[in-house]
Amino acid sequence: MLINLIDKVFLSNGYESVEFDHGYDKLSARLYKPSDTENKAEFYLLVESEEASSERADQLLSKWADELYSILRQNPAVDRVFAKNCTMIICWPEIAITSRQIFQIEEDRYNFKKNVISYSAAELTDLLVKDIDFTLAQINDLIGAGDGRYFQQFKAKSAELENYYSLLLKIFIKIPFVTYVHDPKRLFDLDSSLVSRLSVDERALYDFTLNLDDDLSDQELMMQFLGRIR
């Protein structure tokens, strides 16, 4: 189940699990709150059904979500921030939920903001093989692997690919605190790249412009430019 992997994402990135009972058969639900040492205010409720189906997805929206909210409001581990700042992350096999259901769930803002991570068995298996703690640094390393080649491959064949990369991108999109950090070592020098493509005349004009005094008036600037082309 994807919920076991996402559990690592929370526990490795400044969140701790809150114990609670809900009594629903075959439904895994885990609440995460920021660790005391973290400057965060978000709560997250992670849910997944051990017997996921389209019918149970409907039940989650029509009944369980509201009841879970009421149960958690009574938990002594949550504070007033929970009421307005808790996101429900729903892990669901893509064969057991329709696009229409995902839209209905994510458009429903009652009690929780809701994000659905739908996944295939191939995606989950491929990501589990990585066997990491899923810290933000490790997740970023996986996304940035291949110096951007993997992302380009995904863009070109996104409808065909079902691997760890496509599932990681869903995690980035659906879990707000999972963000991509640009690695300066992987960025090329844009200025040098552009200058190297200039013609000889264009390069001369570029150098002339860089050497102009910033305090020149418009008239002085025009005189210098005219003097250059005579």
Rank of each mutant, 00 (worst) to 15 (best):
L45F: 10
L45D: 02
L46I: 10
L46Y: 11
L46R: 05
V47D: 03
V47H: 05
E48Q: 15
E48V: 11
E48P: 03
S49N: 11
E50A: 10
E50Y: 15
E50C: 09
E51Q: 14
E51S: 11
A52Q: 00
A52C: 02
A52E: 02
A52D: 02
S53T: 12
S53E: 06
E55Y: 12
R56G: 01
R56W: 08
A57C: 09
D58L: 13
D58Y: 14
L61D: 05
L61N: 06
L61Q: 06
S62P: 07
S62A: 13
S62F: 15
S62C: 12
K63A: 03
K63D: 03
W64D: 02
W64V: 08
A65M: 11
A65S: 15
D66E: 10
D66T: 13
E67V: 06
L68G: 00
L68R: 02
Y69F: 15
S70K: 15
I71R: 05
I71Q: 04
I71H: 02
I71S: 02
R73Y: 07
N75I: 08
P76M: 12
A77I: 03
A77C: 04
A77Q: 08
V78C: 05
V78G: 02
V78M: 08
V81H: 08
A83L: 09
A83Q: 10
K84M: 12
K84D: 10
C86D: 04
T87K: 13
I89Y: 05
I89E: 01
I90F: 09
I90D: 01
C91I: 07
W92H: 09
P93W: 15
P93N: 12
P93S: 10
P93V: 08
E94W: 13
A96E: 13
A96C: 10
I97V: 11
I97P: 00
T98C: 05
T98P: 04
T98R: 09
Q101H: 08
I102N: 01
I102K: 06
I102D: 01
F103C: 03
F103K: 10
Q104I: 06
Q104M: 13
Q104L: 13
I105D: 00
E107M: 15
D108K: 14
Y110L: 07
Y110D: 05
N111F: 13
F112W: 11
K113N: 11
K113M: 12
K114E: 06
N115Q: 11
N115I: 09
V116K: 03
V116M: 09
I117D: 00
I117V: 09
S118V: 03
S118N: 08
Y119R: 01
Y119C: 00
Y119L: 06
Y119M: 05
A122I: 10
A122Q: 10
E123T: 06
T125F: 14
T125C: 07
L127M: 14
L128R: 15
V129D: 13
V129R: 15
I132Y: 07
D133C: 11
D133S: 15
F134T: 02
A137M: 11
Q138E: 09
Q138S: 09
I139T: 02
I139Q: 01
I139A: 04
N140G: 05
N140S: 01
G146V: 04
G146F: 08
D147V: 04
D147L: 08
